[in-house]
């Protein structure tokens, strides 16, 4: 849905006049009062909403709502067919509304960000159901213990995975239907080694492997390499910038617990601000 129908260019163009927001929970019992008021105004009473869309005016009054038809199997998981159909449903939903002309926003990206910390991009390889077509992007602030663990090494030393956990626990795929969106266990074997100087900065390289077990029923587990280049001021030991990548192949299970396929997940990690 997020990766195909909603991200289809025609769908994005239809949504540009709006300030876009979302609510998601386990059931409608989790809804905050303001979201519940919108859902009630639309006359939706079911405890589960696979997907529901609402257009509100500037004062929050409900203008239109719909429960779109989003069934990827009906389109043989073809993102183009799904996207075109979803855009048609959006067009019908919004037809006749007096919407403002969208601002010049088209080329400007508003990515998740933090004043200081890390941003992680997760992208995914080809998969049978065409999932994950829009990258997952997370931004996180870092505790002092994270930076302390990556202080400049005068000689190679092991780095405990636990000290890097705020970053490592982001290396999981979305849409694991039998999970809660977290990791049960993380095993990391990482070594930080000095890597010379370019005259203005000193460098170190963090290398090793990270194994992750998800909190889902099937106990999905995957292991892969992580490599980061860390820079430091020439006369300082606190990390100045971090960039690198990690790669894993995770098994995707059927509802019956059989491994249907393995999917490549790549993380691109950058410190913020640049």
């Amino acid at each position: 849905m997020r990766g195909s129908s909603l991200a289809w260019p025609a769908s994005l163009d239809l949504l540009r006049p709006f300030i876009v927001t979302y609510w998601s929970g386990r059931t409608t019992d989790d809804m905050p009062a303001d979201v519940r008021a919108v859902v009630d105004a639309a006359g939706m009473t079911h405890q589960h909403l696979n997907l529901a869309l609402f257009a509100l005016d500037a004062d929050g009054k409900l203008l239109r709502s719909t429960i779109p038809f989003v069934r990827p199997p009906a389109f043989r998981f073809d993102p183009a067919a799904q996207g075109k159909d979803f855009a048609q449903q959006l067009t019908k939903m919004l037809d006749g509304l007096d919407l403002p002309k969208p601002a010049e926003r088209k080329a400007k990206l508003a990515l998740p960000d933090v004043p200081t910390g890390l941003r992680i991009y997760l992208t995914f390889g080809a998969n049978r159901l065409n999932h994950y077509r829009t990258p997952t992007v997370e931004a996180l602030e870092l505790p002092d213990s994270f930076r302390a663990a990556l202080r400049y090494p005068d000689e190679a030393r092991d780095v405990a995975g636990e000290s890097l956990r705020p970053m490592l626990q982001q290396f999981y795929p979305p849409a694991i239907m039998d999970g809660h969106g977290g990791c049960r266990k993380i095993d990391a074997r990482l070594k930080l080694s000095p890597a010379g100087s370019d005259g203005e900065r000193r460098w170190a390289i963090l290398r090793g492997t990270v194994a992750i077990e998800l909190d889902n029923k099937n106990g999905t587990r995957y292991e892969g390499p992580l490599t980061l280049a860390v820079s430091y001021p020439k006369d300082g030991s606190t990390p100045k910038s971090i960039r690198g990548t990690g790669t894993w192949e995770f098994p995707k299970h059927t509802p019956e617990g059989r491994v249907a396929e393995t999917i490549v997940m790549t993380a691109a990690i950058e410190s913020r601000p640049e």
């Binding site: 849905m1 997020r2 990766g3 909603l6 949504l15 006049p17 709006f18 300030i19 876009v20 927001t21 979302y22 609510w23 998601s24 929970g25 386990r26 059931t27 409608t28 989790d30 809804m31 979201v35 919108v38 859902v39 405890q47 589960h48 909403l49 696979n50 997907l51 529901a52 869309l53 609402f54 257009a55 509100l56 005016d57 500037a58 929050g60 203008l63 509304l97 919407l99 403002p100 998740p112 997760l122 829009t134 990258p135 997952t136 992007v137 997370e138 982001q170 999981y172 979305p174 849409a175 694991i176 239907m177 039998d178 999970g179 809660h180 969106g181």
Partner: peptide, 22 residues
Amino acid sequence: RPVFLIANTNITAGCNFYSGHT
């Protein structure tokens, strides 16, 4: 400006439509 609200439920965990993570 108008607001567009996307709502969904997932019995095991809600998701973050913006970041993409569960």
